[in-house]
Simulated assay, not measured.
Amino acid sequence: MTPPPEQVVELVRRLATSPWPTSEAERVAWFTQHGLPTHGRAAAEEGSTLSAHAAADGPPGWGTTQWHVFDDAFVGLCWFLWRDASDRETRAAAELLATAFDARWTLVERLDDPVQGFTALWSVDDVHVDLYFHAPRVTPHGHPIDSVVQLHVDHAARAATADAVAASAASPDRSYPDV
């Protein structure tokens, strides 16, 4: 499998345990240090001036590396791994990652679903490692979904802040004036 699960575990370990970048210059240096693409296709989130995503190919064999910036601070990065592997191989790789992460870090939560797969979250100081194994299935609209591993490494506090702002922007104002 490309990348080998052991290589994924090692990169995630290095990312999660290294000093987290704050500025764009620090992010570029950190990405360079870890062999990640430093510049990519940027796209601001619709309706947001604070949040932006970027994506680029790499490292070799990993497909697209995606990263998220909120309020000018680097939040985290994400991959979708092993799209071209068989379901059996993808599921085995996901379980290997989960077992390796369990051995290193505190498991916050794991949810298993016989149809959709599983998700697990680990806490590493100020960093969260979030793994989703998406099992192959057909959506209610009839669209087939192949198995894939979705992997996020995020600064926990920055991700929580970005999520809270996004949630408040998406929900209607429920406050009422004093009468």
Rank of each mutant, 00 (worst) to 15 (best):
S86Y: 07
G142E: 01
R104I: 05
A156F: 04
R91T: 03
S123I: 04
P114T: 04
D113K: 04
V124T: 04
E89I: 07
W105Q: 05
D154H: 13
A98M: 03
V108F: 03
G117A: 11
T99D: 12
H143V: 08
R110G: 08
S147Y: 02
W105Y: 15
D87L: 02
P144D: 05
V148D: 00
D113Q: 05
A166W: 04
A120K: 05
L96E: 14
P140Y: 09
L111H: 14
W122K: 04
D154R: 01
V153C: 11
A92P: 10
V153Q: 07
D87H: 13
R158W: 08
S147Q: 05
E89M: 05
G142D: 01
T161I: 07
D113R: 02
G142C: 07
A98N: 07
D146K: 12
A135S: 13
G142L: 00
V108W: 07
W105I: 07
A92N: 10
D102R: 08
W105A: 07
P140G: 10
A166G: 12
A100C: 11
D154I: 07
A166P: 01
P136E: 02
A164M: 07
T99K: 10
A92R: 09
A135V: 02
A120I: 03
A92S: 07
V148G: 00
A93S: 13
L131R: 03
A169Q: 10
P172M: 07
S123C: 09
A103W: 04
L97N: 01
A169D: 14
E109M: 12
H128W: 13
P172S: 13
V165E: 14
D125M: 01
A159H: 08
A135T: 07
F101M: 15
A162H: 04
T90L: 01
S147M: 00
A164C: 03
A135R: 13
A103D: 15
P114R: 08
W105F: 15
A164Q: 14
A166Y: 06
R110W: 03
A98T: 13
T90W: 08
E109H: 12
H143S: 11
A159Q: 09
Y132L: 14
D113F: 04
A93K: 02
L96K: 10
D163E: 09
A170H: 09
F101Y: 15
A166S: 10
R110Q: 15
R91D: 02
F101S: 05
D113M: 03
A160W: 06
A103F: 09
R104G: 11
R104C: 12
P144L: 02
V148T: 11
H143M: 11
A93Y: 11
R137F: 02
R110Y: 06
R91L: 10
Y132N: 13
S123E: 12
W122F: 06
F118S: 03
D112V: 14
D163A: 15
V148F: 01
A98C: 04
A157H: 05
D102P: 07
Y132H: 15
A94H: 00
A98D: 14
L151K: 01
A160R: 10
V148Y: 00
L97R: 04
L131Y: 09
Q116A: 14
V124Y: 02
S86N: 06
L131N: 05
A120D: 05
V165F: 09
W105V: 05
A167S: 15
Q150S: 10
V149E: 00
D163P: 01
I145A: 03
L151T: 02
E89N: 08
A100M: 08
R158F: 11
A169S: 13
